[in-house]
Structures are given as structure tokens and as C-alpha cells.
Design a protein around this nucleic acid. Sequence first.
DNA 1: ACCTGAACACCGTTCAAGT
DNA 2: ACCTGAACACCGTTCAAGT
Lengths: 216, 216
Amino acid sequence: VRESRTPGRPARLSRDAVLEAAEAVLRQGGDAGSLTIRRLASELGTSPMSLYRHVRDKDELLMLLLERAWVRVPKPKLPRDPRKRLVALWLFLHEALLANAWVLDVLIGGKLMAPSAVWVMEKMLEASIAAGMTPDEAADGYRICWTFTIGDLLMRRARARDAELAQQPPQQLQVVTGADPGATPLLRQLAPRWVEARRRNTYLTDLPTLIEGLLP
Amino acid sequence: VRESRTPGRPARLSRDAVLEAAEAVLRQGGDAGSLTIRRLASELGTSPMSLYRHVRDKDELLMLLLERAWVRVPKPKLPRDPRKRLVALWLFLHEALLANAWVLDVLIGGKLMAPSAVWVMEKMLEASIAAGMTPDEAADGYRICWTFTIGDLLMRRARARDAELAQQPPQQLQVVTGADPGATPLLRQLAPRWVEARRRNTYLTDLPTLIEGLLP
DNA sequence: ACCTGAACACCGTTCAAGT
DNA sequence: ACCTGAACACCGTTCAAGT
């Protein structure tokens, strides 16, 4: 898929044009499922196959989009205190991923990260060590937080879907509150807290709790 | 989708037969993507549409399968010490989910849990409180661990796919090791640990670390 | 060199008809 | 009552052909 520019026919499409159109689709569509090769082609007024001249396949398209989305995210101002800095970095990353919800689908599909995301990793490791962790602890801590963050995004979307297509109380809560009360007193006692947690961005409190526990 | 049994034609199919065939497909297929209505029908020697008499749609099919899979998992022997018990419960749950890899797809799709999974929740909350947490802390801790567990399963599968279709060093590592060494010294320093972590079941060490940090 | 149409091998699901 | 075939509205992608 080389971009050769030699006589023949003037190129109507370009890789950039394809990517921009894809971004437009994603902006209105929401999740990555709404971006299909065929939809994109029709948006561009061409045949599906013309896209394959500018992009190897759908996987590559998504990877390129991930990269572009990430580059556009403005880097945040960071606090001096290393503990606060570490928390701030994770909240920043979480918010960036949340703003581009479709990214989760790319991550799920096996593309684990964008090349330009390395600086956040580096800064997180640096802050962890400055806060008193050994390098190995920092590496483990990073993995734990990243895993937690991905999990949070996943649960969040699952909940959003659940709420979307069902007016009735969501399935998860039905299970919790519908359980045999004698057998599960704690579940029953904590049901209100579960309900409340669904309305809140729990990441904002959970991530600090998590990090507090990991730091010495 | 009521199972009425009145004269007419003898039923060749039953809900149970459908579910059993689906389980057979999943046992050999791996992830939930391999279970399609059409595939299942051909395995049963019928038309795709005949399944819809026994199951509302594919979502309901997956939910029923999730329930059945969970019921079959044998309950583990649990240690007396509450801290150890809490860890054991999570390792148990993680392993059960790992053994039925396709379950992740159901969870991703928005079905957040099976009704019969409540007893594990209850036991976890109980162990958390016995280990010194307040009920509210126990609820938050449960959420954090569950989110982490889901994230772990997701990352695990993403890595498996990455390794499967590419002999070359996986994309994630390429990114980490290929980064500008001057800009990211810590990343570079910790690269070996990343490589090593990919070969290990990191959940076995990460989850205890996580819980240790959450407990008072 | 660049674009296209037809086709392949799939999906889940609806609808009207067959036995 | 139970099952089916044809059809609808989709996918990503290959292949041979058109300009």
C-alpha cells in the first residue's frame, strides 16, 4: 500500500481523506461498530474497494485512527507531588479514552496501545518511583492500574448498553436485589450503594484508592 | 417462546438440545464468535429458524449458556483466614471465567452477571468484612477487584490473539522496546520485566497485591 | 494508476408458507 | 404445532475488469 504519485489518473482519494471521513463517522456514530468499510465508502461517494488502495485492511484503519486520536489529545499540566501526579496521569488517560469510546473496541481487538502513548507510561513509571516504589513495583503497579482502567471502560460501556435498550431496572441490579434475601444479607444491605455507584463516575474515587494501596 | 406440548408434530428440538449443541460448539470453537445461529443449526441438522422456537434471540441463548456454565463450576474449599479466603475466592472466580473464555464476550455485550453468581459476591463481602473492612469499603473493594478481573481477562485475550496471528514480536512489545531510548529510559529499563510478565499468569500475583493494598 | 462491479462467504432475523 | 426457504439488510474482502 505505497502511495505512488506517477501519471495515470489523478487520485480522488488519499489516506488522509479516508481517515478524516472515518473520524467524522466515529464522531457521530459512537462505537467502532458503526464504522464499516462500506459505510465509509458511501460517505466518501466511492466503492468499498477503493479504500483498500489507501489502507491495508480494517485493522490498519483502526490502528491509524487510534494513533491520530491520541496525538490530538492535549498533554495535561501535572502536579509536582509524585503521588498526586500519578493519580492525575491516570485520570487524564482515563478521560482521554472515555472521550474516544470507540478506542475500546480497538483495544479489545488486540491492538494494545498506540506508539505515541509511551510518554504517559514513562511519566507514570517516573512518578511511581519518585513516590517511593522500586522500579519493579512501578512496573507491576502500572500493569495493575492499566488492567483496572480497561476493565472500568468495559464495564462502563456494558452498563450504558444495558441502560439504553432496557427501561426496566438493569439486569445486574435485578440479580442483586432479586436474590434470596436470607442467603445473601450483605448483598441486600449494600444494594443502595450499588445503585448509587451506577450513577457516579466511580473511577474518580476508585483509582486513587487503588494507587494509595499500591504505594508504600 | 413458551414450550407448549399439545398435538401436532412431535418436537425434534428442545431448548435443552439446543443448549447442549451450543455447548459442544463452544467447547471446540473457543470464543463466542464461533457460535453462530447458522452454525448451530447446521450442527443440529435443522434450519437456522427452527432455533428461534426455543430461544428468543442470540442474546438469550448466550445468557442461558452463561447460567448453565456457572452452575456446573464446583464450589471450592475455602481457607479459614478471611484474607486468604478473599484471595482464594477471586482466584477461583478468575479461573472459572478463564475456563469458559467465551463468557467474556457475553460480559462485554452487556450481560453483567449470572443470577447464580451471587453467592460468590456474598462470600467475598463477608470475607472482606471479616478481614476488617467496613461494609462500604467491602463494596468498593469488590467493585475494584471485579473491574480488575474483567480487565485482566480482556488483556489476556487481546495478547493471545496478538500472539496467534503474528509470529513477529507482538505489537505491544514493539512499541515499548522501539521507543526513542533517550526519551523513555524507564520503559527501556523495565522492558525485560514486561517480556517476562507476558509469559506468566500475572493475576496470581497481582490480585493478592491489589487486595493487600485495599485491606486495612 | 486508480477505481469499480460482481461475487464469495459469511452474519442475525422477519415473514409467509408448508406439513 | 413445529419446521422451513426465500428474502432482507447487512458484513469484510478477493478477483478480474474497466478507464
